[in-house]
Amino acid sequence: MGTEFSPKRIEEVVAFHGHWCPGLALGIRIAEKALQEVGRAGDEEIVAVAESDSCAVDAVQVLTGCTLGKGNLVVRDVGKMAFSFYRRRDGKAVRLVPRPRPDEGGDLYRMLQIKSNEGTLSEKERLDFATLREARAQALLDADLEALLLVGPVRRDVPPHAPMEPSRLCERCGEKVMETKARLHGGRVLCPDCFDGEVRR
């Protein structure tokens, strides 16, 4: 029981992310299960799709080799803590979702989370919240992986390889934009930001 990753690897994840938190701990366990199911990404052999932009995404990047920059990590933010992993060579694919945990949070944790989001924690509450977060993160690292995560079928086909498309010059701001992202307005080629600006005027 507990994660197979060494303390050194976990430190690397924390250094990349910038702080330690339950979301990062959960991402470590998701990455661990993904490695067991589909293996580590070389170039674009393994593809990950995250269903939110949570802290867990950073752990997945560091530990699986699926990254935003390579295009084999895709964020489709629908607000769910769920990840799909695909192995291109043989079509193996799994979707990982945390099982609901009855011990997750509790009223005090949720109240302190809200106050933290609002920036209204007292010094004592800040310390209490830090203690609860540390305990929650450690519980995720120590949990039995099978009890922690549901493994199911993916809901979408594997994303295509990262596109390499030509760029066009935005005729409003003068910056280059990928041709497939450019918009046409009034006969002018515009980047999405300039298009939105034109439409709002």
Rank of each mutant, 00 (worst) to 15 (best):
G2I: 09
G2S: 15
G2Y: 14
T3G: 03
S6N: 12
P7G: 05
K8F: 13
R9P: 01
R9K: 15
V13S: 05
V14I: 13
A15V: 09
F16A: 14
F16L: 05
H17C: 05
H17R: 10
G18Y: 02
C21S: 15
P22S: 04
G23F: 00
A25T: 01
L26W: 02
G27T: 01
G27I: 07
G27K: 02
I30H: 00
E32N: 11
K33I: 00
K33N: 08
L35Q: 02
L35C: 04
R40N: 14
A41Q: 08
A41M: 08
G42V: 14
E45I: 06
V49K: 00
D53S: 15
D53M: 11
Q61R: 01
L63D: 01
G65W: 06
C66D: 06
T67H: 04
L68E: 13
G69Q: 12
N72G: 02
N72L: 10
L73P: 03
L73C: 08
V74T: 03
V75H: 00
V75Q: 01
D77R: 02
V78S: 13
V78F: 08
M81K: 14
A82Y: 03
A82I: 04
S84G: 07
F85P: 00
F85G: 00
R87G: 02
D90T: 04
K92N: 09
K92F: 01
A93K: 08
L96I: 10
L96E: 04
R99K: 09
P100A: 13
P100R: 10
P100Q: 14
R101L: 03
P102W: 04
P102I: 08
G106H: 12
G106V: 03
R110C: 13
M111H: 14
M111F: 09
I114W: 11
E118M: 15
G119H: 07
S122G: 13
E125L: 14
R126T: 04
L127H: 11
L132K: 10
E134Y: 11
D142S: 13
L145A: 02
A147K: 15
L149E: 00
L150W: 12
P153H: 13
V154I: 11
D157S: 11
P160E: 03
P160R: 13
P163E: 13
E165T: 11
E171P: 02
E171Q: 09
R172M: 09
R172E: 12
C173A: 09
C173H: 12
C173I: 08
K176S: 11
V177F: 11
V177M: 03
M178R: 15
T180V: 13
L184P: 03
G186W: 08
G187R: 01
R188T: 01
L190C: 00
L190D: 00
D193V: 13
F195R: 02
G197D: 08
G197P: 07
V199H: 01
R201L: 09
